[in-house]
Nucleic acid binder design. Structure first.
Lengths: 246, 246
DNA sequence: GACCCCCGTTCCATATGGTGGAACGCATTC
DNA sequence: GAATGCGTTCCACCATATGGAACGGGGGTC
C-alpha cells in the first residue's frame, strides 16, 4: 500500500467486511491508517457517493458502488447468468449460497445470496477476499486450478482459521486429490466454527473450471443428507451455467 | 476534480458508460486526463482487481467492483428487496427495468435488469448518473421531492438530450404537477430518441418517496396499452416494496 | 515491403497534493 | 466534574503524483 488511491481502496474494502456500519475510528484501526488521513479520504469518497454516513456518523458503502457493481455484474456473463440460479438455490434450500472466483491466489466471492426468512444464518459475513485453502469453494478452485497456484498458496502460508483448518501442505494435497476425484469439496468448520459447506466447480464451455458455487450453513442444519442433496443441486446449477460461459 | 483519488473514481466511472471495453486512449479522451496519468492509475486499479484488461488491452470493470457492489446492494434494504421484483417485471414484460434514486441533484440508477432473449433492446446503456428532468424516473423523483431540489436542478440548466426534451422551466413545472396528480411519469423520447418509458414512485413505510421504478423500451413496442399495463405492474411492485423500507 | 499512424509504455524534473502528529471541541460515561 | 473517546481542523514538510515528451512496435495502407 503506497499511493493515495491504494489507501482509498483499502478503506472501501474495510467497509465491506462485517455487517454493521463503521465509525471513523474503527476504520482507522482496521486499516492501520491515521485518523486524519482516513477522514480526508472518506470525505472525498462521500462527495462522490461511494460512501455514505448514517445518522450517527458511521460509514457504509454508498449508492455509487452499488450502481457500479450492478452494471459490471450485468456485463459479466458469469455473474449475470448465475444470478437467477443462485436465487433459486437459496429459495429451494434456505441456505446461503456463494459464487466465487480466483483472483491472483485469493478466493473472491463475486456474489452471495442469503435467505431472508430464516433467523439463524451465517453470523459473520465472510470476508469477500480470503485464502482458498479453508473454504469449500477455495478447495474446488485449488483442486482444479493450476499446479503452480497451489505452490504459491502453500508458500504464502496456510492460515489457521479454526481448529479444523487444514494447515499441513501434505494433508491439503491429499484433500485436493480427493476433491478432484469426487468432483466436489466440503468444509467441515474449517473456515468458520460451526459452519459446514459444499462446493462444486463451474466449468466454461471448453471444460475449464472458472468459478465455484457453494452453499454454507450451521452444522445443526447441514446434516449429511442435506449436504448430499445440496451437492447435487449445486452441480445441476453449475451444469446449467456452463453453456453461457466462454 | 483534484485529488488522485478523484481521478481514479472518474476513470472507474468512465468504464461504466458504454457497452464495450475501453482502450487506454479512449479513457484518456473521455476523462480529459493525460494518457500517462490514466495509465498509471489503471495500473494501480488493476493490481487490486478493480479493473481488468482483456486479451487486447482494453479495460473493463473488474471482479472486485462486482463483489463490492453485490455486498453493498445486499445490505441496502431497497436494492435487495427490489431485486426479485425487477426480475419478475423483466420476465413478465420483456422490457428493461430500472431502479433509481436521487443522489445530490442527479438521478442514479442503482440497479437495472434487461431481457436477455430479445434482440431489440436499448442500444445505449443509460449513463447511470444523469440529469433527472428528461427521464421518467427522474421526473417522478423531482415531482415528489423537495421543492428546493427542483430549483437547484433548474438553476443548473436543463440539458437538451433530444428534440422532445423539456428544457423550459415552466413547462417542466407543469409536467411535474401532472406527475404529482397522476402518480406516475412518462418519457416520450425525451432522454433517448426512440425510447418511451414509464416510472412510478417507491414509497417507504412512512409514505416518503425514496426511489423510482421505471420501464423503458423502443417506441414501436411500447404502445399506449402496454405503457398503461406496465404502469399498473410497476405500481404493484412499488407497493410490494414499501413495507420493507424504513 | 516500406511507410505511417496510433497506441501503450517508460522516463524524469517539477511542484502540487498528500501526509499525519497535534490540538480542539463536543458527547457520553463514570 | 473529570475523564474518555470521538470527529474534526490545522499546517509545515516532503513524498508522491504529475504530464509532456520520447520510445517502440503492431497493424493498416498503398
Amino acid at each position: 500500500m503506497d499511493t493515495a488511491i491504494d489507501k482509498a481502496l483499502v478503506i472501501l474494502e474495510s467497509l465491506e467486511t462485517g455487517r454493521g456500519n463503521r465509525s471513523l475510528a474503527s476504520i482507522a484501526a482496521a486499516t492501520g491508517l491515521p485518523k486524519s488521513t482516513v477522514h480526508r479520504i472518506l470525505a472525498i469518497l462521500e462527495r462522490r457517493a461511494y460512501v455514505q454516513q448514517d445518522a450517527f456518523k458511521d460509514y457504509s458503502l454508498g449508492p455509487k458502488i452499488i450502481a457500479l457493481g450492478a452494471f459490471a455484474g450485468e456485463r459479466s456473463p458469469l455473474v449475470s447468468a448465475a444470478g437467477p440460479l443462485l436465487d433459486r438455490l437459496v429459495r429451494d434450500w434456505g441456505e446461503t449460497v456463494h459464487l466465487g472466483i480466483l483472483v491472483e491466489d485469493s478466493l473472491l466471492y463475486v456474489d452471495r445470496r442469503e435467505p431472508q426468512d430464516i433467523a439463524v444464518r451465517l453470523v459473520a459475513a465472510p470476508s469477500p477476499l480470503s485464502q482458498p485453502h479453508a473454504s469449500a469453494g477455495g478447495k474446488v478452485l485449488l483442486a482444479f486450478g493450476d499446479e503452480r497456484l497451489l505452490d504459491t498458496v502453500i508458500a504464502g502460508g496456510l492460515t489457521r482459521y479454526t481448529a479444523a483448518t487444514i494447515v499441513d501442505p501434505d494433508r491439503l494435497k491429499a484433500e485436493l486429490a480427493r476433491v478432484r476425484e469426487s468432483g466436489y469439496a466440503t468444509s467441515e468448520q474449517e473456515r468458520n466454527e460451526g459452519v459446514r459447506a459444499v462446493a462444486v466447480p463451474v466449468r466454461n464451455r471448453s471444460g475449464a473450471v472458472v468459478a465455484t458455487i457453494s452453499a454454507a450453513g450451521p452444522t445443526q442444519r447441514m446434516t449429511d443428507e442435506k449436504l448430499h442433496s445440496l451437492r447435487v443441486a449445486l452441480a445441476q446449477a453449475a451444469a446449467t451455467l456452463s453453456p453461457a460461459l466462454r
